[in-house]
Nucleic acid binder design. Structure first.
Lengths: 158, 158
DNA sequence: TAGATTAGTCAATGTGGTTGACCAAACCGT
DNA sequence: ACGGTTTGGTCAACCACATTGACTAATCTA
């Protein structure tokens, strides 16, 4: 059986962007698995990044991730069960439950940052550093200004 | 409250690729909704594209989409309910059930192609045609050769 | 202090994915 | 032609991630 027909012209661009993203994410998690973080799912890296070293709350996390506070809360539950996050009471506001990285979670986040840097360097070795930079510049240009609000939908689940 | 800290250097590249993809998909579906296809979810366009004008079977569809035949079957169920796809018996093999686009589905697929072409043109107007082409070339270079197997995980659900 | 807002949780539901089990039809080698 | 294997489809159970609505408790504010 031959490979399926290549997509029509207009379909190419989104597919390539998706493929580029997927490639990075897949490579990241393959390497993370090798480094002792096999349980980390694609989505989780974004969550750890959004929690950050300073910690946050479930509601704020939901806002950063662009999902409801309930969805954020459930994701935190799972990452607590995996020992990536922990909850603590906020002494200044009894309603709030602070969400913080555990040492294990901080390790995962730091390794992710290192691996992403390496992957970007690999792209720079292949394409040339200036083309990677141009690619980033171009994407920043055509993308809404608030792109860094880590708006990651369900789809990283793959 | 200030916007959250921008991501660390290594995190930028995947986030920008994701943002670019999301921007295209969101714009596509906003326009599709205006043109009478409000029920089409982000994933569905890829499925229609994978079904193609000639039709296919659930198993083959699963292969093209990189998911199990069961998952493909359930997705077909949903698109049948929305009148985008229909099933028919294969007279030459009683096991197979052909999956075909309905007229409504074909309309959605064609409109998607047109809109994607327009969006790509919009990028070319902003960045210049040669930079869009360079972007595509670069992504093709750093991406596995089989990228056009429409390997779309759960995440288009957003 | 009363009323509005905010944080978190629970419950029900939807979508898209997985594995395993199973049946019927088709294929293939003796 | 027959019997074993492969293939296509479906069912069931389950998981991950999202939604909305309802609710409590704590805090803020007029």
């Amino acid at each position: 059986m031959p490979t399926p027909d290549p997509p029509r012209p207009g379909f190419l661009l989104p597919l390539l962007l998706l493929a580029g993203f997927r490639t990075l994410i897949d490579d990241l998690h393959a390497e993370l698995a090798r480094q002792g973080h096999a349980e980390l799912r694609p989505l989780h890296g974004f969550v750890l990044q959004a929690v950050g070293a300073d910690g946050t709350t479930a509601s704020e996390l939901g806002h950063r991730l662009g999902v409801s506070k309930q969805a954020a809360g459930k994701t935190v539950d799972r990452l607590v069960a995996l020992d990536y996050l922990e909850r603590a009471d906020d002494p200044r506001d009894a309603r709030r439950k602070l969400v913080r990285l555990t040492p294990h979670g901080l390790d995962g986040l730091r390794r992710s940052a290192v691996i992403f840097d390496e992957l970007r360097q690999r792209w720079a070795d292949t394409l040339g550093a200036e083309r990677v930079a141009a690619l980033e510049d171009d994407l920043r240009t055509v993308t809404p200004a608030n792109w860094f609000r880590l708006d990651v939908p369900g789809w990283l689940t793959g």
